[in-house]
């Protein structure tokens, strides 16, 4: 076989292979298995949820936290800090309840990870905030504002556990969560009274009841949703609601504490 014939043969084989493999962008079939593009949230049609969380019954009185095991904590707070298990207003409103959209209502959407960090401060040998939310992949900045040592020990079930020391005042430490998890507890093993909780979600539709038990969840796409309220002692409650276009839905949760 001479050189010309060889080149001809190679060219034919190459042509056959190209056709057989379906080369050519214009004829490529759409990939049926690919997920549909996430529907963007139309702010113009979005609705809101507002609500209150109330408590029925008389909860145990908040205890004064004795911080004698660390003079720096005691001097900063004067041993006047109260436990935060039940933060109840005079009208029975309940703070520190994490309220969020649960279930399948948002499954066909994806949401960008906020570029701003959520901060968890250790100040007065207490975590601030005590209950908060964050999105998967969003930066959590943990700060030590105390003139003493803290360790930040997260004890999640789904995400990776971590335990990081912050021996110097002003230190910060950044961390992200990879998985949805409600809730991830934090504790400080140096100061056994310190604890906090974060709800990790893949969407921004969550809130925490503040003073007056009030919470807000804004710019929610119209649809039917399951809403869950979580309290560290009293557990969870769920409700199903429908949010119409530009509608603000009021939701109230009432937890009961046994006498």
């Amino acid at each position: 076989m001479d050189v010309r014939k060889s080149w001809l043969l190679v060219s034919m084989v190459a042509l056959v292979l190209t056709v057989a493999c379906g080369g050519g962008g214009e004829t490529e079939a759409p990939d049926e298995s690919a997920e549909p593009a996430a529907a963007p949230v139309d702010d113009a049609n979005a609705g809101n949820i507002t609500g209150t969380v109330m408590l029925e019954g008389t909860p145990p009185e908040a205890d004064t936290i004795r911080m004698n095991s660390d003079p720096a904590c005691r001097e900063k707070t004067g041993n006047a800090t109260l436990t935060e298990y039940y933060v109840v207003g005079e009208d029975g409103s309940l703070a520190n309840v994490f309220v969020y959209v649960k279930g399948e209502g948002l499954d066909d959407r994806s949401f960008p990870v906020p570029s701003n960090a959520v901060e968890l401060d250790q100040n007065g040998c207490q975590y601030s905030p005590h209950v908060f939310g964050i999105q998967v992949g969003q930066t959590l900045t943990v700060r030590n504002s105390d003139n003493t040592l803290h360790n930040i020990h997260a004890t999640p079930s789904t995400n990776a556990e971590f335990n990081t020391g912050q021996p110097i005042q002003g230190m910060t430490f950044d961390r992200e969560f990879d998985e949805v998890e409600v809730m991830v507890p934090f504790k400080c093993d140096v100061h056994s009274w310190m604890n906090a909780y974060v709800g990790v979600l893949d969407h921004p539709y969550f809130g925490v009841s503040g003073s007056g038990g009030v919470f807000e969840i804004n710019t929610l796409p119209p649809g039917e949703y399951e809403i869950e309220a979580w309290h560290e002692i009293l557990g969870t409650q769920t409700q199903t609601i429908t949010v119409g276009e530009n509608e603000t839905v009021e939701v109230s949760f009432t937890f009961t504490v046994s006498e």
Binding site: N151, N163, T164, G165, P167, D189, V190, S192
Partner: peptide
């Protein structure tokens, strides 16, 4: 008993 097993997160050093 005091649940202090992780009060020092590093080892063999102590907070560096």
């Amino acid at each position: 008993s005091t649940d202090s097993g992780l009060a020092v997160p590093d080892w063999p050093n102590t907070y560096g």
